[in-house]
Design a protein around this nucleic acid. Structure first.
Lengths: 236, 236
DNA sequence: TTTCTACTCCCCAGAAATAGCGAGGCCGGA
DNA sequence: TCCGGCCTCGCTATTTCTGGGGAGTAGAAA
């Protein structure tokens, strides 16, 4: 039994954010790296995180709205596979300034981040970073890659399980015609065009949009389509 | 070197659908199961698949539009973690009829499906199924779980890499104000409300929406917001 | 059987979005 | 320095959407 499996067991029993936090600390010990962080955006846009960053750095990050500068966030949003920080675009001036400041706060110069996406638009990142040479880091990643993916998945499963406790997965169910309507609108069709494609009158189409809107608790058509996409009941 | 690692290497070199197909066949041999299937919906809603199902079954599946009945699809859309088919809801009449027919076409009675989500709304499923007892299947899954997750990831990485060849990831870049506008609209705000929140005149807001629309190649506001969400440049 | 949901169609008035036109200031890169 | 992108504001006319109100069918569930 490796230490890692012990940690996975610990992870699988975690039911609160503090327990995930503790796992990140154990992982840091185990891998002997600067930091281990897991954070995510849930289905209603709230952000959560746990990890070994100092509160100073987290406060700084939030205060300066680095979410919109951090190339790791940008890069991971565009990718499925894990991302080595070296492969990201650090060419812009704010990005470099951000990196410089991060290092001052103890963040490693080398980093590896695994993006994950869940139902209802959930998006999460599992990051490990360290200060060492490119070669050492490459060797480390090469060796641990698989384990890191599995650990990251473990984190996300627990996080999603915690959410289900809070948001009991009340996905509104739209009828087939309502879904078609939402899909066509999401594709940019006007009501007239959508009605035409569905071979119904525009009046009828409007009824579907309305009822979909009500089911989704949306303020207007755009909102309804946005929610449909976000909760994954339609795909463009 | 296990056989599995050989297969992962094979997978990592795959550049076309046929090669993925071949890997599914190898996996079926290796694990001695009825079927191995990987299929996905890409960023523009096109569907692709490869695996060991018979063409008869695939044709039947498409013909009867089973995508909208199959509880595996439904269940996986709502989940992040891998799904054992037994844990799904087979209570509805069409679902049971579907399962019965699937078995007639050689699909296993036991199944395990791993859902995956990528950037730009990509959604994929990796499935392994077999006909055996509950106990044997549980033991098999328990033993292979980790490897299956890694293999599934391998498939998805290759599939996404193939897509980038076809859709060169030309993500339009919106200005900060344009992004704010899109985000507020996605949250259900009207133009007046959004303008108010951004502390600008509604006329100005309109300019942002218009320019965002043009950058995104969208037909109307709803379409622009839908695209922004789908390509992941905003989060609700 | 009754009830419920889904699907289809219709009208109207007011609110909102769209498609054009225009203007000026600011900042950063070529 | 000039060009381009970004941010801000204005006008008009037309089209589209929204939010109410109806009403009838069919099929499935209770």
């Amino acid at each position: 039994m490796s230490k890692l499996e012990d940690m996975q067991n610990l992870l699988n029993r975690a039911t609160a954010l503090e327990e995930l936090q503790r796992v990140t600390e154990h992982l840091r010990e185990h891998y002997q790296v600067n930091h281990v962080v897991y954070h995510w955006v849930n289905s209603v846009g709230e952000r959560f995180g746990c990890g070994t960053y100092t509160t100073d750095w987290i406060d700084r990050y939030l205060e300066k709205d680095y979410l919109h500068i951090d190339p790791v966030i940008h890069g991971c949003f565009q990718r499925f596979n894990p991302v080595d920080w070296k492969s990201l675009d650090w060419s812009s001036k704010p990005a470099r300034a951000f990196m410089k400041e991060a290092i001052e706060f103890g963040v490693g110069t080398q980093g590896y981040t695994i993006p994950m996406r869940g139902p209802n638009g959930q998006f999460a990142l599992f990051t490990m970073n360290h200060t060492c040479s490119d070669e050492d880091w490459a060797a480390f990643i090469d060796k641990q890659q698989r384990d890191l993916i599995l650990v990251a998945h473990g984190f996300n499963q627990r996080a999603l399980a915690m959410e289900e406790g809070v948001f009991p997965l009340a996905t509104p169910s739209l009828s087939p015609r309502e879904l078609s309507a939402m899909t066509l609108l999401a594709k940019g069709k006007s009501r007239a065009q959508a009605a035409d494609e569905m071979s119904i009158s525009e009046h009828t189409l409007r009824v579907y949009i309305e009822s979909a809107r009500h089911k989704l608790g949306a303020m207007n058509t755009t909102h309804a389509v946005a929610r449909s996409l976000a909760i994954g009941i339609i795909v463009v």
